[in-house]
Write a protein that binds this DNA or RNA. Structure first.
Lengths: 244, 244
DNA sequence: GTATGGTATCTTGCATACTAGACAGAAAGA
DNA sequence: TCTTTCTGTCTAGTATGCAAGATACCATAC
């Protein structure tokens, strides 16, 4: 009946990655403890682990929140992914037929989710492609790293992107697998780099500036006229997100 | 007086990386709690964080141990480092004079530690070079990743290498910085790859086979004569290491 | 009507108490 | 003397209780 720490961790993580919990959402220890039917200790351990993975943060005596990556962090995460994933493809010597088949099967899943319009599942699956790719290449350490980085960029997408250009990503994935099948690993790496760039540039990294940054701008603009105060944004409160 | 969780985490980690605590050493919760003068809760959180970083493992109801990476894990860690660090160097567009100067200063520190014969400090500094390099390139996410991977390979070195060929590594580092100074990033990446390969191949990855493997060999050799049982190895007990 | 100050409540932070399981050593039987 | 079983002790796992602090709300004064 009582779930393990790992299960709680996974449950929270998938809820976040599927978009059921938005960045900035507060995750109260007692709340979660009640939901999972365990004591706060277990919940705490799960949250600590998610913190080391860069998915949640704790603010002392205020609570746990799903991270809202800054523009800077977003750029770094994308850059990190580009470095690692292209490096991985470059280091490849061969790709067995099994791997190609497995990746193609995954792409079919993506297409199905896109056709069904299942947004949460879409985001999950599109991220999973990269994790799946790393898994198939057999290095568990790198897989772990890519898994966490993908989680981060998925969070970034949620914050800065109105909606994911799912079919474009899906198309990119297909091209990458095509290149792999041809044995053109350098080409695959190039496509991967372009793909991650495309996802990043598809975001509106200026759409959601730091509240502090916004304030500073307003203060710098001389007289603080009432109309300059951005009432309608209301981004200073982490809990303002509706969680419907 | 009472140290923070982060301080405890760092303290344990540096002790491990400096070789003061050997792989396989047991880390009892109550023991550590007494040492740091805090309750088990804090120690536990520190250990959980170190676990997610791949430095310690917990065996259910038996205790926490400094990880003893298997040969497989060792290979994966080195491969991961090669992929990431060469990818990082490849993605480089320029290297400012400040960075070069900072790296050269670090290399001087390495030389000093080698000259002084300070083995623990040597291992630390040689690993730090890579972390320092990542830091200077300005991506904190990648730096974190490289930091953890370096910790892993340092552990591997402790297990499988009688002693680090410190001066060779130091020489490699110099060559990498030279290449960076010339703006030859592809060359630097090539040197880095060779360097990591050299460190890996310098290890005796067959020196410390799995206890299970050893047992299997002995069982396969027909009659289990008493002399065939490797008493003097005693690798089944994680606490047999002297901790002088 | 607005601003300010105080209080009440809710949050994590930390320590302690308790539980269950694993291991080791002793004792009993073969 | 060797093997097996049982029991005591030590371990992490978990829950709970209390304390410190931050936020939010309400009352009061201007």
């Amino acid at each position: 009946m009582a779930p393990q720490v790992g299960e709680i961790e996974a449950s929270i993580l998938t809820a976040i990655l599927a978009g059921r919990i938005r960045p900035g959402t507060r995750l109260g220890e007692s709340q979660l403890a009640a939901i999972y039917g365990v004591s706060r200790t277990k919940v705490r351990e799960a949250l600590v682990r998610l913190e080391t993975r860069g998915v949640v943060t704790v603010s002392a005596r205020r609570g746990w929140y799903v991270v809202e990556p800054s523009v800077e962090e977003a750029r770094e995460a994308f850059h990190a992914r580009k470095v690692i994933e292209t490096g991985l493809l470059h280091s490849l010597a061969d790709a067995s037929g099994d791997i190609i088949a497995s990746l193609r099967a995954h792409i079919v899943l993506e297409e199905a989710a896109i056709a069904a319009g299942d947004v949460g599942n879409q985001a999950c699956l599109l991220g999973d492609f990269h994790i799946h790719l790393a898994e198939l290449l057999g290095n568990r350490v790198l897989t772990e790293v890519i898994r966490d980085l993908t989680a981060r960029t998925t969070l970034v997408s949620m914050l800065y992107q109105p909606r994911e250009k799912a079919s474009e990503s899906n198309h990119d994935h297909q091209e990458i697998v095509d290149a792999l099948e041809r044995g053109d690993f350098a080409g695959a790496a190039r496509l991967m780099s372009a793909h991650i760039d495309a996802v990043e540039s598809g975001l509106d990294l200026s759409a959601r500036p730091d509240p502090l940054e916004l304030l500073k701008e307003n203060l710098a603009s001389g007289v603080l006229s009432p109309s300059a105060v951005p009432h309608r944004h209301g981004i200073s409160s982490p809990t303002q997100q509706d969680q419907s």
